[in-house]
Design a protein around this nucleic acid. Structure first.
Length: 334
DNA sequence: AGAGAAATAT
DNA sequence: CATATTTCTC
């Protein structure tokens, strides 16, 4: 499996770029937290590139649009209303900013602990997040691909075992499905491979998974077949005539979440943001005190979150310089 | 205690 | 309706 090790390493970067990923703005600016810590004031202070994935469930909306997933990307800034509009992700450069922000899982460790019993908002599995998930699983191997390990490997703050477990379940199902129609009959080896889009039982579900290339042998353990799947990312299901600003809000893996108690109208936001860290695994950042937690406002009010919720690139990719992205992972293959 | 699968909620 | 969350069981 050493081979894999080296492989995944290089693969990691390759798999990073996704059409969808590029679309959303993945600009990483100075986080409010950071700014505060450094006492820096950015004129543009729209820094908080908070990608808020709001899942608007229209229960009784007259508007009957197809099953869309209205995910809004909002960037709110704690500062004055003078908000700067979104900036086009002009630079397609991978943000190598790795700042660990503290995710408040509904419980601020910063001195405010409203309630730890608060229910966690819905987690939005963005392609990126999923990618990370897949990567983790891939690196771990199906064998060790257990929720706990995966979760730990992902180092995604806010992610809980349940989340992973649940997703893992789905993922396995997806894989199984793929196996079924790809190699099932006749051994057309790799029929569904590249395109893989040919037959999809669940367009929506598959779509997400399709976003991330299957590491490889995922489909058939025991057979180290290096069937390379084409990096071809099926952008299927892109049949929207309207140009919306929405799309996959996937700027980053996560978004700021905060306990907004909305009965039915849910705009749950999730805040994540734990980069793979460096050096040694996952540590806490001595700096960046978490002063997230904003006072709970009454609902109905546009809550600006002073929360240091910002997104950033998931992976730190490469860097010849000398930074190791996700490394030192106990691949633990015995 | 943890993982897997199913059921439920949103 | 699909997805994610929650619960139960092994």
């Amino acid at each position: 499996m050493r081979e894999d090790d080296s492989n995944w390493f290089s693969r990691w970067e390759e798999e990073l770029p996704s059409p969808e990923e590029l679309m959303p703005l993945s600009q990483t600016l100075i986080t409010p937290d950071l700014a505060l810590a450094f006492d820096i004031r950015n004129p543009n202070s729209n820094s908080s590139a908070i990608a808020i994935a709001a899942a608007a469930n229209n229960g009784g909306s007259p508007t009957r649009a197809q099953a869309h997933q209205p995910q809004l990307q909002q960037q709110q800034q704690p500062a004055p209303p003078s908000n700067n509009p979104l900036q086009p992700p002009s630079s397609a450069q991978p943000n190598s900013s790795e700042f660990g922000d503290s995710a408040d899982l509904g419980s601020g460790a910063a001195g405010e602990e409203p309630a730890r019993t608060l229910k966690r908002p819905r987690l939005v599995w963005t392609p990126q997040l999923h990618k990370r998930f897949v990567d983790a699983v891939a690196h771990l191997g199906i064998k060790n691909a257990v929720p706990k390990t995966i979760m730990q490997l992902m180092s995604v703050d806010g992610l809980t075992r349940e989340n992973v477990a649940s997703h893992l379940q789905k993922y396995r199902l997806y894989l199984k499905r793929m196996q079924g129609l790809s190699g099932g009959s006749g051994g057309g080896g790799g029929g569904a491979g590249g395109g893989g889009l040919a037959a999809s039982a669940d367009p929506a579900t598959d779509h997400l998974f399709a976003s991330s290339p299957v590491p490889a042998h995922f489909l058939h353990p025991g057979r180290p077949n290096s069937d390379h799947f084409l990096p071809f990312v099926p952008v299927a299901t892109l049949q929207h005539h309207h140009h919306h600003q929405q799309h996959m809000a996937a700027a980053a893996a996560a978004v700021a979440a905060h306990p907004q108690l909305q009965t039915q109208y849910h705009r749950q936001v999730q805040h994540f943001g734990s980069p793979p860290t460096n050096g040694g695994g996952q540590f806490e950042h001595p700096f960046l005190a978490r002063q997230s937690q904003q006072p709970v406002h009454r609902m109905g009010q546009p809550v600006h979150n002073p929360v240091p919720g910002y997104v950033e690139d998931l992976e730190s990719a490469n860097a010849t310089g000398g930074r190791k992205a996700l490394t030192l992972f106990p691949t633990g293959d015995d």
